[in-house]
Amino acid sequence: MAHENCKHLLGSLSEYIDGALGDEICAEIEKHLAGCENCRVVIDSLKKTVYLYHVTSEDPQVPDGVRNRLMQRLDLKDLIDK
């Protein structure tokens, strides 16, 4: 990642892993990746980072009582009186 090319690509990697870049820049990135192991590691770990947050997105469980307290609160006059 110390190469100028690597730095140049850094800002595009996030969109690259989302598949949101045009063909031209994708080709440029892929050409660079073929010869740069560090960047391949960065891309793989960036993808894994996003993946881990995705699979844990349903954490935490909503604790017992939250729904009841919410429904109770919503019946207060706060809500009825404007």
């Binding site: 990642m1 730095k7 560090n38 590691v41 960065v42 793989d44 770990s45 894994k48």
Partner: peptide, 11 residues
Amino acid sequence: DQEPLQIVDWC
């Protein structure tokens, strides 16, 4: 930008 400093393949 956070320039990558940690290059470890933990995937």
